[in-house]
Design a protein around this nucleic acid. Structure first.
Lengths: 366, 366
DNA sequence: TAAAAAAATGTGTACGTACACACTAAATTA
DNA sequence: TAATTTAGTGTGTACGTACACATTTTTTTA
């Protein structure tokens, strides 16, 4: 009612009829319609929308009224078409050849590239050696030097990431990360709550715990893997047990892939461990060791690597927590593209659900 | 190399230079570029692309060559802009007021509607009473009579769905479903593998099974809920136990919400059941009954209803299987919109992963 | 060989937005 | 009051595609 009254007062009879026509017919409101209703030219409407001044107070009010009454939304297609620039996105991730964990990640990215092939974006993927922080910085700097519109990367190393972020900040390049969250500010992030993921692992193990159970958190390759990652998971894990079974001691062991079998065997036998929370995708190493020792045990670990899946199906691993690297990559890339192309805003920080995988539901994952 | 040779033979010197320029510069190939390289007008290129004939053999070959060499991809934005029709999508889902299971579904749809507000689509949501097949058919027929471009619905009732699908087939309306899969053909479907989901439930329970355990599958409200749904889950559940513990007898019980507490109490006491696989979102009813009987037990059920979550956190329910109705709805609607707007093709049948929820990872779900 | 018919090709316009430029009206100055 | 500045407004064009229509070229027929 209010709406009508206001219009009757501010618009002529004919404009009112046109307004009713627009509201009744299923038709998208264009800048032209606004111009007609406000009885000005589209140029004036355009100046109002973009706040470029040179508009009389009277016209401004009429246009703003029409804009609001008709709930005008600019057509993103026409806007993007007119815009006519090709956005470049540079992506830097660990080399999947060096660590197969990143394979689904590359695959996810390639799918998105194909999906937006026909649009005005130029996406390129680059790799660094996950065991060499230097290669990360070097590649990163190279890419930044080319001034892409956005830079998406996995901040595996804290200090080195800071350097890249600093370089990026000077250049007005959109900063986006996934998998790990760097200390410094980024414009967009997709990841998982690692602390919570540790608690999930704890709960899964806790369900099987007996008074005599011996529990250990195993970190593999802490040296050149993401140390903070593992720490946060461990903290989450321990916090759960502190709440639910305060008396239960949790062992912690850091091992190297080098002599992993030997080191682990000794550790397991010495401490009589029969329940394991493995904080990395190399969970299969623990299962393999247990197998070689001909021992039974409960193992909860991370990620759907082929080796892990094999043990999951055989029963050597009870549960895997899925970090969905592929989904993380494709989601972050997609939001980046849509931000640039249609300036669609999505939440800065997106935390993906922590997915529990057992021998059965694994079949439902692609 | 081959590519070059072919071009040298088929194009003039100047065209070749232009081709090199196009390849080197980061620039999207337009119909105009093709016309220039093939040395014809854009009209001719257009006729070739749309196979509208009236093109000489020579021109056709030149254009096709250029199209392929330059890997032309039509700009979906310009195409959609030119197209200039408003697509209508009618959605029919069970009334969330009648069954709260459908609340996230409505929410998911509303989010997508907002997301595409500025685009040329007109999406409307309508509800039917999940306990009244007639209301489903009636509402459905009404919507179909309005000739939307696409019709997305939850085929809760088999026979009634067939009727709607028949009506749809006559009218060239895109048919899409989610949650349940109807017997007859649809153009698009998003759902879950229910048989597998039954197996997942089985595995979760199996991990806790003792020789003395008594296991039951509980169906609640089979009468007006989706009977096939429940059957498939039960089959999956039993198939797992047949494989892993052939001797173990699985009880089955169908109960009505009416006198559920009483019926269940009797059933549980008579059969000494202590492990439950509940095939519907009313899992909390079993937990409540067990609570009132002051008994302990293992319960695995479905869906993140507030009542279920409360028992999950208290420990009355061990695991919930998440059918993600909201995600199913938004995913199917999104693909529908993108299909109409940009004729982007996505796979006809999309099966979502079966997600296992416990008291911890539930926090990571929105 | 000219005229007519048919085939092939090119041109112009629209979609909705954005922006440069041209123009008109009002305000200021001489 | 005329000349000039300035505020306000309108017009035209481009983005890339699609399609109607106009134009040119080739083929057929008289």
């Amino acid at each position: 009612m209010y709406v009508h009254t206001k219009l009757v007062l501010s618009l002529t009879q004919i404009d009112l009829l046109f307004w009713i026509y627009l509201s009744v017919m299923k038709k998208k409101i264009t800048i032209k319609d606004i111009a007609k209703v406000a009885n000005v030219s589209i140029g004036t409407v355009d100046r109002v929308i973009h706040k470029r001044g040179k508009v009389s107070e009277k016209a401004l009010q009429k246009v703003n009224a029409a804009l609001e009454e008709l709930n005008y939304k600019a057509n993103p297609l026409a806007r993007s078409l007119k815009n006519n620039v090709i956005y470049t996105i540079a992506i830097l991730i660990p080399d999947p050849e060096k660590d197969p964990y990143w394979l689904p990640c590359r695959k996810g990215i390639e799918e998105v590239i194909l999906e937006y092939e026909a649009f005005d974006v130029d996406i390129s993927v680059h790799f660094f050696d996950p065991s060499k922080p230097k290669s990360f910085v070097q590649k990163g700097m190279e890419l930044i030097a080319k001034n892409p519109n956005a830079f998406l990367f996995v901040p595996l190393f804290e200090r080195e990431s800071d350097r890249l972020l600093q370089a990026l900040s000077k250049k007005d390049i959109v900063k986006a990360t996934f998998n790990s969250l760097p200390r410094n500010h980024v414009d967009q992030h997709v990841g998982q709550d690692l602390y919570l993921s540790g608690r999930v692992g704890a709960k899964l193990i806790y369900d099987f715990v007996q008074p005599a159970s011996k529990i250990a958190v195993i970190h593999i390759d802490e040296a050149f893997n993401n140390a903070i990652h593992m720490q946060q998971k461990e903290e989450g894990f321990k916090s759960f047990f502190k709440e639910m079974a305060p008396g239960h001691h949790i062992h912690t062991k850091i091992v190297d892939t080098q002599h992993i079998q030997k080191t682990l065997s000794v550790f397991i036998r010495e401490n009589q461990i029969n329940m394991f929370f493995v904080t990395t995708s190399k969970t299969y190493e623990v299962a393999r060791t247990l197998e070689s020792l001909d021992m039974e045990g409960t193992i909860v670990g991370y990620d759907l690597l082929p080796e892990n899946l094999s043990y999951l199906k055989k029963g050597g691993i009870q549960f895997l927590i899925h970090q969905a690297p592929g989904l993380q990559a494709s989601l972050s890339l997609k939001s980046l593209v849509e931000k640039l192309l249609f300036d669609k805003e999505s939440s800065k920080k997106q935390l993906l659900p922590i997915e529990i995988i057992n021998s059965e539901n694994v079949e439902s994952y692609p």
